[in-house]
């Protein structure tokens, strides 16, 4: 087993709203890491709400063993939020001052907000308060990038590209390509690679 993790176990949470490709993103990342020889444990929270409910994948990466499919409170090392308010929810329960947060800036409004019964914070409010809690935060318009590539579902892959760009994990473009090559059709592979590269580059700029 390789042992070049920043911490063991290294804890990642991918969160968003049902239908945003949360589960697919965690599977892709998990397969890349198992391919690299790590132990990976993923716990998913989904089911009742195929679309529109909060979803969350807890991922544990270790050179030694399987871990609990639920991360203990305040022990996340990275949070990938495909939806900003879900990012806040996860940050509050699992975050800490040193957590790395990669946050899609595109909101998905809860029905209470659409009805006018609840308030959804402005992008500025979200950015200020989140940075205050987690200084190592990067906001990305992943959905915007995904839409310009032709499908909003690619937002998760854009964020995976960004994650790989941070160097937080021992993964590169080739690992991602291998992970999708045997699961998707050629045309889809190309599109996903574009999304990955977009995310990767966003951090560099």
């Amino acid at each position: 087993m390789p042992d070049n993790l920043l911490k063991d176990p290294y804890n990642i949470i991918i969160t968003g709203v049902g239908g945003q490709g949360n589960v697919m993103a965690s599977k892709l990342l998990g397969n890349m890491l198992v391919g690299r020889g790590y132990y990976v444990t993923i716990g998913e929270t989904f089911g009742a709400s195929q679309r529109g409910g909060s979803v969350m994948s807890h991922m544990r990466i270790s050179g030694k063993s399987i871990w609990s499919p639920q991360i203990p409170e305040h022990k996340a090392d990275v949070i990938i939020a495909i939806e900003p308010v879900e990012g806040i929810r996860v940050l509050a329960r699992y975050g800490n001052l040193t957590v790395k947060l990669l946050c899609n800036s595109h909101p998905v409004y809860p029905s209470s907000v659409i009805r006018g019964e609840a308030y959804y914070p402005s992008p500025e409010e979200i950015e200020t308060s989140v940075r205050n809690m987690a200084p190592d935060t990067t906001f990305i318009d992943a959905t915007g990038e995904a839409v310009s590539l032709g499908n909003p579902i690619l937002a998760g892959v854009v964020l995976l590209g960004t994650l790989c760009g941070t160097g937080a994990l021992p993964l590169n473009r080739k690992d991602f390509h291998e992970s999708i090559a045997n699961r998707l059709e050629n045309q889809q592979v190309e599109l996903n690679m574009k999304a990955f590269d977009t995310g990767f580059r966003l951090l560099k700029n």
């Binding site: 239908g19 308010v85 029905s111 809690m133």
Partner: peptide, 21 residues
């Protein structure tokens, strides 16, 4: 951190109720 986080959720994270797609 926990206290501030609680406040952040209360003010900034509206609940996602069960609805249809």
């Amino acid at each position: 951190f926990a206290e501030e986080a609680m406040l952040l959720v209360e003010t900034m994270a509206p609940v996602r109720g069960l609805t249809m797609c």
